[in-house]
Amino acid sequence: MRIGLTGATGFIGSHLALLAHGQGHQIVAYSRGKKAPPVADEQQMQPKQAPHALPQTRLDALVHLAGESLMGLWTAEKRDRIWKSRVDFTEALVAHLGTWEEKNRPKVLVCASGAGFYGNSGAAPVDESSPRGEGFLADVCAGWEKAAHRAEALGMRVITLRTSMVLGRDGGAFPLLRRVFGWGLGGRLGSGQQWMSWIHLHDAVRIILKAITTESVSGPVNLCAPEAVTNAEFTQKLAAALKRPAFFHAPAFALRLLLRGMADEMLLGGQRAIPRAAMEMGHEFEHPDLSSALTRLV
């Protein structure tokens, strides 16, 4: 297949390109001036806010992973950038794909989303059939997915990736967590009872590629491991893998004071997500439990 990748130089995109190339697929990398992954067969410029400038080329699938980082203070300006880079950009991207010649238009659109779709779901397990939750992230994910599904009117199969925390050595949250815990400064956040869904990078990219190549797969796919854990359990297992203490505790009121709305939705709330779609498509997890995943990473 000829697979286009927005966000091709990012943490997940670069590893997905490597896996897909290794399985014999051609990669068209879209990036904002950064050097494309060395396995890319072609590189195109990825416009920041002008998807109509995305050059037309023949694609079998398009994987859309680009978007404003969620990290940082959620000021009004930051929220606006998050919304525009995800929802508005995807709406414009799908409209632009509608102008492509049918022979060139991808048959599959894979669009990033997030487990934040479910809001703070507490201890109740959630799978792809569960309703959306409440909060800014739930609104963004719902809008993002709605924008992506407009491609169905163009005859495209649409997959939305409800991504949990992706653990890898060279990107995402893990390098920072490793440094903090390595210094002996790790600890639980708030009560520690909030659920955390996660997935090892190797499983994440394999699920994405399998979803692309499996014609029966469409709609939401929870990108998470079968074993969700509480924040307290995650803290304990990471400290054990690093052989470091984790005595520090970040009180909820302090996190809310420092980080405002971001704290409640990203640190003090969470989801106990289940990868039903991934298991139904036959994915066998390389890292199904957190202890083995962390041991491998460190």
Rank of each mutant, 00 (worst) to 15 (best):
T57Y: 14
A204Q: 11
T295P: 09
E227L: 02
R81L: 14
E128C: 11
D88A: 15
F247E: 11
P37N: 08
E227T: 01
F181P: 09
L189Q: 09
E227N: 01
P275D: 00
L62I: 12
L258K: 07
P288H: 06
V140R: 03
Q56K: 11
E145H: 03
S113H: 10
I159S: 10
A40Y: 07
L16G: 09
R276A: 15
A40E: 01
I12P: 05
L185D: 09
G269Q: 05
D289Q: 14
R260D: 13
P220H: 00
A173E: 01
H249E: 12
I3D: 06
Q194K: 04
G187K: 03
K210R: 15
S197I: 06
F117L: 07
G119W: 02
C111A: 10
A239Y: 01
F181G: 07
M266L: 15
V217I: 06
S130K: 09
G135P: 09
L93N: 03
T163P: 12
P220Y: 00
S292K: 13
V140A: 07
M196D: 11
A61C: 03
L294Y: 01
Q56C: 13
V39G: 07
G133R: 08
K103V: 13
T163W: 11
F234N: 05
K103D: 14
R86S: 02
R32A: 07
I207N: 04
T214E: 04
N231Q: 08
E145D: 04
G182K: 02
L201T: 10
E91W: 15
S130H: 08
G98H: 01
G122L: 02
K107L: 12
A241S: 03
G168P: 14
D289C: 14
F234M: 02
A112P: 08
D264Y: 09
Q193I: 12
K78S: 05
V221Q: 02
R169E: 12
L294N: 00
A293H: 00
L189R: 10
Q23Y: 14
P55C: 03
G190Y: 05
S191R: 09
L238F: 06
V180P: 07
L70V: 12
L242Y: 00
E233C: 02
R79L: 04
P51R: 06
G261E: 03
Y118Q: 02
G269P: 02
Q46L: 13
P251S: 00
M262S: 02
E42R: 13
G186A: 07
P55T: 03
A112E: 02
I159R: 08
A40T: 00
L167S: 08
R157E: 07
D41F: 14
L242K: 00
M45V: 15
K34D: 13
A138I: 06
A95N: 11
R260T: 12
P106L: 05
T235F: 08
P288T: 07
A250H: 10
I207Y: 04
P106H: 03
I208F: 01
D60W: 10
V87D: 08
S291F: 06
W144T: 00
D88S: 14
A246F: 06
H287W: 15
A17G: 10
Q23G: 13
K210L: 13
G172W: 04
M279Y: 15
I207D: 01
